[in-house]
Design a protein around this nucleic acid. Structure first.
Length: 508
DNA sequence: GTAGGGTTAG
């Protein structure tokens, strides 16, 4: 499944706004891509600022609407000084339309005054990998090398992650081990990154064997051991994590606070609540001062286990012990209140965090919105979504997915479609989950017109590089046939044979 | 893009 990588934009809202002003301002002065302003003469006036979100949105929409053959022309006509920074931002906006993003990347190469950078190549390689288009991926890599722009260790982190998440972990190991043949030597940090990629995809056994073979060659450090321990914790095998940490100490490396936080989280994840509590107590007793990550782990862990009072108590305690909660701490508390207490109590905490000067981020809003939807208060959830826009915290694809899912479940299909339409003209393109949720919703009312919409959505998602499951495909085609839409059903089947990407099962 | 906390329900 496709999961967009975390954005690399500075996370403004995660900062505690009572900090001195110069600390809470992300420094943007070092990069100065150009932005567009139109005078009354429709002539572009360029000012040395990054393009505004609005103009990026405008550019992304132009690209989405443009036919592939006209794309270079469209780009020439854009009143933008193309620079790698601007291109990366546009590629991020086109993230959920991989084929378009790659067309955009290619068209730029035909512009006389623009040259791709290491970073734009990395993004294009990432997108090709996500589309499982490995031929394009390796072509891009060799072009990158010809132009002396890489590949860098980051490029290989991207490639190996794409292979692992496509279920090709063995191939990823070979690629990692052959990095040097592509002009990129391995070192400890690329080794650590690769082990982390394997662990995060739950290929912990494989990571561990690789670790055993190469730990001496790469001189495994604390971070290596932490990565492997966290891997075992992720699959709830805390005894294996403890084993690794024992080995770590024997090899002369000292655990850090991160090590303890990993283990603490592991106990909670494995449902070993008693062990978690004892471990947390031991940490404090032995003078290992918990930090905000430790407290957030404990609050979330107790909450998930249904121990709301304990979670609240720890939240109160942390301030007394000289540790201020972060936005993530609030998010953890709000989430567990939604789940195990009530959304009303969660909103009280949300309001408390505002009073104390914290700036909620998109996760905060998503947690509250989900809580409201879950309590069948969809109208209030929609109010919160509007409020996000006012608070300069744009809804992301998850926000839309939550609301669309609950609207479909409640049978409010027209409202769900309304929200969906807002996405396309908006800042965020639908992802695979969005299409699956909405196509499923088109079967709720058993209306012929809904099935036509489901067919259009199916075609659109394929155009954007998503592969529907066989189940989805058959369901839509069958639905169309059963509601007298034979013509459209045939059209979809024809598109299927042309694309060759759709699952092939259905025969007329 | 060398590690640790917060976003889905079933």
């Amino acid at each position: 499944m496709f999961h967009p990588r975390k954005t690399t934009f500075p996370n403004r809202s995660n900062r505690f706004i009572l900090l001195p002003l110069q600390l809470s301002q992300p420094s943007e002065s070092t990069q100065a891509p150009l932005t567009i302003k139109r005078s009354s003469h429709h002539q572009a006036i360029r000012t040395p600022l990054s393009p505004s979100q609005d103009s990026l949105l405008h550019i992304a929409n132009l690209i989405l609407k443009s036919k592939p053959e006209a794309l270079t022309q469209t780009l020439e006509k854009c009143d933008v000084q193309w620079s790698p920074d601007v291109v990366v931002q546009v590629l991020k906006r086109l993230w959920n339309d991989g084929p378009k993003a790659l067309q955009f990347f290619e068209s730029l190469d035909r512009l006389p005054n623009y040259k791709h950078s290491t970073s734009t190549f990395d993004h294009a390689i990432d997108i090709a990998g996500r589309l499982h288009d490995y031929r394009t991926l390796w072509t891009l890599l060799s072009r990158m090398r010809q132009r002396r722009l890489g590949p860098t260790p980051k490029t290989f982190a991207i490639i190996t992650e794409r292979y692992v998440s496509a279920g090709k972990a063995d191939r990823a190991v070979k690629i990692f081990l052959s990095m040097h043949e592509h002009g990129c030597p391995q070192d400890l940090s690329s080794f650590n990154t690769f082990l982390d990629v394997l662990c995060k995809s739950k290929r912990v056994e494989m990571a561990c064997s690789l670790f055993k073979v190469f730990k001496r060659r790469f001189r495994a450090d604390t971070i290596t051991y932490n990565i492997i321990a966290d891997g075992w914790c992720l699959i709830k095998r805390t005894p294996k994590a403890l084993e690794i940490l024992k080995e770590m100490v024997e090899s002369g490396l000292s655990p850090t606070l991160a090590t303890y936080n990993i283990l603490l989280h592991g106990f909670f994840r494995a449902g070993q609540i008693k062990e978690s509590w004892e471990f947390f107590a031991q940490m404090k007793k032995r003078g290992c001062k918990p930090d905000v990550v430790t407290y957030t782990t404990v609050i979330h862990g107790f909450g998930v286990a249904g121990e709301i009072e304990k979670a609240r108590k720890v939240f109160k305690q942390m301030v007394g012990e000289g540790c201020l909660p972060s936005v993530a701490t609030y998010n953890a508390l709000i989430q567990v209140l939604c789940k195990k207490d009530s959304v009303e109590n969660a909103i009280l905490i949300f309001e408390e965090m505002l009073r104390k000067g914290y700036v909620p981020n998109v996760t905060t809003y998503n947690v509250v919105i989900r809580g409201l939807c879950h309590a069948s208060k969809i109208d209030r959830a929609l109010d919160f979504m509007d409020r996000m826009k006012d608070d300069k915290c744009d809804p992301n694809v998850q926000t839309y997915n939550i609301v669309i899912r609950y609207l479909c479940d409640a049978g409010e299909i027209d409202e769900a479609l309304d929200v969906f339409r807002k996405m396309d003209g908006g800042s965020c393109l639908p992802n695979l989950d969005t299409y699956n949720i909405l196509i499923g919703g088109m079967f709720v009312r058993k209306k012929s017109e809904d099935l036509v919409v489901s067919g259009k959505l199916l075609i659109e998602m394929v155009d954007r590089g998503y592969v529907p499951r066989k189940f989805t495909f058959n369901r839509v085609v069958n639905g169309l046939l059963l509601t007298g839409n034979q013509g459209f059903a045939k059209e979809i089947l024809r598109a299927q044979s042309m694309h060759g990407r759709l699952p092939c099962k259905f025969k007329l």
